[in-house]
Amino acid sequence: MPDPTDDTHQAELARTREFFAARAADWDARFPDDGPRYAAAVAELALEPGQSVLDAGCGTGRALPLLRAAVGPGGAVTGVDLTPEMLAVAATRDTGATLLQADCARLPLPDATLDAVFAAGLISHLPDPAAGLRELARTTRPGGLLALFHPIGRAALAARHGRQSTGAERPEAAKEGGDLRAEPNLRPLLAATGWRLTAYTDTDDRYLALAERTD
């Protein structure tokens, strides 16, 4: 497994921070209609009052109020992001969440303490997706849930960027630069990192993969 402290990993993290730092101030304004889709995705986690949930790659914190409402005042909500500018926006939301600047491959969290992880757009920005998913598994109790979410599906996102989606045809496509979010690629990746894929939706108006932490 690549070392999350190596130069290549750190260089990729720096590029991610630079990309999002320049966009933090107007990020929410660019995507004003995403709220209901976030709410629907959080609802799929079926969180209960008093639970502990992580928003991994929380960005400007759009999911934080929804997660707080789900776990209630007795629950714990933590938002983690690489980019200080994104976290500064998230801090303006009155959610009572703990906000941490951290690499998702090196979370400052104890083992097996989370009941659920919500991750919007995260997997595409991980320098090493396997390392990131493995670290999320480390911090999640057996039976805990992971939601990999994006407010639009892979094809719609690819079209937004002027390209076609790839990787849906066969698992080995991941080794050829295919989209790791495609179900044939994502299922074995999750299985290898401590998760079991339980549900998968990829439509124009939503991408949501749900997984359960295995023993």
Rank of each mutant, 00 (worst) to 15 (best):
A199Q: 12
G96M: 09
A14I: 07
T8Y: 14
S124G: 15
R17W: 00
Q10I: 08
H125R: 06
D6Q: 05
V71L: 03
P142F: 00
F118N: 04
P142N: 07
F31P: 01
A119D: 11
A116V: 12
E12I: 01
L67N: 08
G59W: 00
R181K: 11
L122S: 07
Q101N: 04
L47Y: 11
F149E: 05
G50Q: 02
A174V: 14
G57P: 08
P188W: 09
L145C: 14
D111C: 08
G75L: 04
A191R: 11
L82R: 00
T8K: 14
Q10D: 07
A156D: 08
A24N: 09
P36A: 09
A88M: 08
R170S: 12
D103Q: 06
T214I: 13
T113H: 13
A192D: 15
R196A: 15
T139Q: 10
W195Y: 07
T214A: 13
A88F: 06
T198K: 10
P65I: 03
H9Y: 13
L133P: 04
E169C: 02
V80H: 03
A39P: 11
R23S: 07
L190P: 12
L145R: 15
Y207C: 10
M1Y: 01
E212Q: 15
H150G: 13
T166N: 10
E212N: 02
L210K: 06
V117K: 08
R196Q: 14
T201W: 06
D205C: 01
P171K: 06
D33Q: 12
A130R: 11
A131T: 15
A70E: 13
L146S: 03
A182D: 10
G57Q: 11
A40Q: 12
R196V: 05
T5N: 13
L100R: 12
A41D: 11
A156T: 03
E176F: 02
A211W: 02
L197K: 11
R62G: 14
